[in-house]
């Protein structure tokens, strides 16, 4: 064999190899082509095996041609491999296509009860002004629920609270969170800024706006100089936080045996914005809480000198605040726990 012949054969091998590579349609086919042309017993090896028959001066020349052929085939193999891989991946992805409009895998939503969340929100607002949370018992003594709050036995003001009594003499179900005032004054020294959320009980027939169990939040602030003006300022700040800044508020006389002076605090009706509607009995106002300056007898019963210390207390119905915030028209929703209700919170 001469140089010319071998060159021509190499050239033909390259042509044939490239064609075979291009013709391979999957990685396995490509592998077969690679073995056939470039393997240890492949055509290129076989062809170059005949190089010994050439004159010595031709051998490097043929070797160089052989390397070029090898390189060309290897480059073509690599390129073809990438092409086939990409095509295979494309094909797989095409097979994996789904209807993306199908719904996702469900997760439970979860919800927090609006009454408890309202308590938390109230605590958050007053917390900004330094109020801290205390807790008191649901089963209270008559002494703390009434007598220490300046409501002796047989006092006409007891009519303000229809009480549920227990079979434990001297104990009743607290009718309000106000006995917490005594608990706080007995365990903390002024300056006091306290909040007491809790469940309360009254002998009250159930309807859309009453229940025999309900939640209240009590507030107490006592030091040497807290005035009714401070009460007003804080209640205004609270009302604006809960019901929107700029909503008008009203401060008017109320009556509680444990505050003097006593206050009823109104906000402009959140339903009709003051125009007058059935919800506000056409007055344009809604009473959201009762308050007042802590009665000197209560300060004394809490162990404080009423000549030195003064302050205010307030009590609000969590249910009422929640009703106004969420636009609920029946407080029975709170305790019925219908999922259709709970899931909205």
């Amino acid at each position: 064999m001469d140089l010319e012949t071998i060159s021509a054969r190499l050239s033909a091998l390259q042509e044939a190899g490239l064609a075979a590579i291009a013709g391979a349609t999957d990685p396995e086919g490509l592998e077969t082509v690679q073995v056939a042309y470039l393997g240890r017993k492949g055509e290129l090896k076989t062809l170059l095996g005949g190089i010994g028959a050439l004159p010595a001066e031709d051998r490097p020349h043929v070797g160089a041609i052989g390397n070029r052929v090898r390189e060309a085939l290897e480059a073509a193999l690599d390129a073809r491999r990438l092409e086939l891989d990409a095509a295979a991946l494309d094909a797989r992805l095409a097979r994996e296509a789904v209807d993306v409009t199908l719904p996702g895998r469900p997760f439970r939503r979860g919800s927090l009860h609006p009454l408890i969340e309202t308590n938390r929100e109230i605590a958050r607002v007053f917390g900004q002004f330094g109020f801290v949370v205390y807790e008191g018992p649901e089963v209270e003594t008559d002494v703390r629920n009434f007598q220490a709050l300046n409501i002796p036995p047989d006092h006409p003001a007891r009519d303000l609270w229809d009480t549920l009594y227990t079979d434990m003499p001297g104990y009743l179900l607290r009718t309000h969170t106000s006995p917490g005032q005594i608990h706080v004054m007995q365990q903390a020294a002024p300056p006091i800024r306290a909040l007491l959320p809790g469940r309360c009980f009254r002998y009250e027939a159930v309807d859309a706006s009453h229940g025999f169990e309900f939640f209240q939040v009590e507030g107490l602030m006592v030091d040497e100089g807290t005035t009714m003006a401070d009460l007003r300022g804080l209640l205004d700040a609270f009302a604006h936080a809960m019901f929107g800044g700029g909503r008008p508020t009203r401060f008017r006389p109320g009556y509680y045996p444990f505050t003097e002076p006593s206050v009823a605090f109104d906000v402009q009706c959140v339903i009709c914005d003051g125009a007058g509607c059935p919800s506000c009995k056409r007055t344009g106002w809604m009473t959201i809480l009762g308050a007042g300056m802590v009665h000197p007898v209560v300060l004394r019963n809490g162990g404080l000198d009423p000549e030195r210390y003064q302050g205010f207390a307030f009590g609000m119905g969590t249910d009422r605040i929640a009703i106004l915030r969420y636009g609920i028209d029946d407080i029975r929703m709170f305790i019925e726990n219908d999922l259709r209700f709970l899931e909205q919170f």
Binding site: F129, P191, D223, R232, G233, L234, R250, P261, V263
Partner: peptide
């Protein structure tokens, strides 16, 4: 009562 001005407390914090 409405003539009592509102203000925020300036007394010491607990």
């Amino acid at each position: 009562y409405d003539r009592i001005p509102g203000r925020l407390p300036e007394t010491p914090m607990p």
